[in-house]
Design a protein around this nucleic acid. Sequence first.
DNA 1: CACAACTTAGTTGCGCACAACTCAATGGTT
DNA 2: AACCATTGAGTTGTGCGCAACTAAGTTGTG
Lengths: 162, 162
Amino acid sequence: MPQLPTSAPVTATEDLLRLEHQVCFALNSASRAFGGFYREALRDLELTYPQYLAMLTLWEHRELPVKRIGELLRLDSGTLSPLLKRLEAAGLVQRTRSPQDERSVLVSLTPAGAALRERAEQVPLRIAAATGLDPAELRALHGMLQGLTDRLDTASGATGRE
Amino acid sequence: MPQLPTSAPVTATEDLLRLEHQVCFALNSASRAFGGFYREALRDLELTYPQYLAMLTLWEHRELPVKRIGELLRLDSGTLSPLLKRLEAAGLVQRTRSPQDERSVLVSLTPAGAALRERAEQVPLRIAAATGLDPAELRALHGMLQGLTDRLDTASGATGRE
DNA sequence: CACAACTTAGTTGCGCACAACTCAATGGTT
DNA sequence: AACCATTGAGTTGTGCGCAACTAAGTTGTG
């Protein structure tokens, strides 16, 4: 970090704010660095990272309504609808209206989509190796991030709406 | 986490991979949660979060070539060119070709852009409060994320190119 | 039953991120 | 000087993320 020619005295508060900037920027950078790494690892599967996440939920649950995928991935229909259409166009998933509730669209794996799981299983191996973190560190990081997301979501939810 | 109806025995490797998934997903989520919070805090400044980051670099350095902003923010010209044009259209920055090197474009603050700094200073206060983390935790998180980004960048750089 | 309130997907529009490309300026090298 | 690889911005195209909106189905209430 290069020293900057601004006002000399740095208070504890200023220091905290600077640090907070660095943290959220570091978060943003790390997320994009991960994205780049996944992009490479997923190239031969012809999946983007968000598409891969959607497939993960389906490999685990076989069939899910769009709404539920959105809850699991923290995404809304504005993002999911076109994404799922692309997965359908690629022949990996099928979308059908639920007979019980015609509003709901059930997304399920096609045979090709289910088959892709095996090829996808080698992907996280490379990623885990590239992080250079051991399980304990991963666990610690995961806990911090999850707590952070929860606090930010409830904070913006509380002040922004309701 | 609901139990899934796959093969029963979960090996240590499988567990690691599952955890790794959670970590990079948690990273992604936390980053977007931050984004949402900044969106709200920056609404009256009429800045997006990436635009705010660009302004931060200029508030610190007064004038920078596009190339240098890209290095600081880990962004390329494909992202920065239109972003900086929007900031110029908003009257916050000025872009001029460098006389020394006609390839380089120098971005500098307009009076309006410089004046915005004061109004922007209240923003990180809200953010820092919302994280609910003390300085030590912020520092730890920052260190982890920075190391992670470095490892991922060099790993993909090493295997992908060169 | 009628009707309003709510829920679920989908669409549109905008900005960001990134790959792939173009173009002009620069800096060697012979 | 002529040539060519490199560098710095910019453009184009694709996909994601989100706000705002529409449309259709469902539910609750009188």
